[in-house]
């Protein structure tokens, strides 16, 4: 599903090059759940951004479903994300001006699907928010917002879900529910799940773990 070949990222920091990701090669098979774990600044979010095509690597190649995304234009990347990748963020990032239902509809509309509305309602039901479709994000609790975000991530049936600290902004009970929902979805839909977290307890429930420290992968943690 995901293949990284010698991928590195160097940024300019006050005139000096700063390596935030050292050359890294890894493969993630389809249908697996993987957590990227490490302390703040270890490069785990950078790695996720690169996999999502949100950021371009300094060197190396990234393949998603056999497509080299480092060779794609901004617009092709956007299309690829719309079709293949679902996102879940720590701060939910719902569009505040749209209702829950509309937030879910958007990716399908971009992809040009005609059944967006019906499907969005079905997804809302799936995440357990049947009757909250017409609420705006500001009218929803954190946990509810994250459920909407998960429904949105599933909108176009992507084979890959990327989650950035999905529970980081929630209390432990709500966090637990979200985590359960993510794993349940993953199992039911046979998608690949890549999740960034700093919490070893959360990392423990995924199939695999990539442990990051100072921009390097220090192997399978435990």
């Amino acid at each position: 599903m995901i293949a990284l070949r010698q991928v590195s990222k160097v940024v300019d920091s006050g005139g000096h090059p700063l390596t935030i990701l050292h050359p890294l090669t890894l493969d993630i098979a389809a249908g697996r759940s993987v957590s990227i774990i490490g302390p703040s600044g270890s490069g785990k979010s950078t790695l996720l951004g690169l996999i999502a095509g949100l950021d371009a690597p300094t060197t190396g190649q990234i393949f998603i479903d056999g497509v080299d995304i480092t060779a794609l234009s901004e617009d092709a990347l956007a299309a690829l994300r719309g079709e293949k990748i679902g996102f879940v963020f720590q701060f939910f990032h719902l569009v505040p001006s749209l209702t829950a239902l509309e937030n879910i509809q958007v990716p399908m509309e971009i992809a040009g699907r005609s059944d967006a509305k019906a499907r969005a309602q079905a997804l809302l039901d799936e995440v357990g928010l049947h009757d909250r479709g017409h609420h705006y994000p500001s009218q929803l609790s954190g946990g509810e917002q994250q459920r909407v975000a998960i429904a949105r991530a599933l909108a176009n049936d992507p084979p890959l879900i990327l989650a950035d600290e999905p529970t980081g902004n929630l209390d432990s009970a709500n966090g637990r529910h979200i985590l359960d929902l993510l794993l349940e979805v993953k199992t039911r839909r046979h998608v690949t799940l890549v999740m960034v977290t700093h919490d070893p307890a959360i990392a423990a429930i995924t199939d695999e773990r990539i442990v990051m420290r100072d921009g390097r992968s220090v192997g399978e943690g435990g």
């Binding site: 994300r81 719309g82 996102f87 990032h93 958007v106 990716p107 176009n156």
Partner: peptide
């Protein structure tokens, strides 16, 4: 900006 980033994230093109 954030809404725009989100929309881009879910596949919207800059031109759209």
């Amino acid at each position: 900006i954030k809404a725009i980033a989100v929309l881009k994230c879910v596949g919207a093109r800059s031109s759209q």
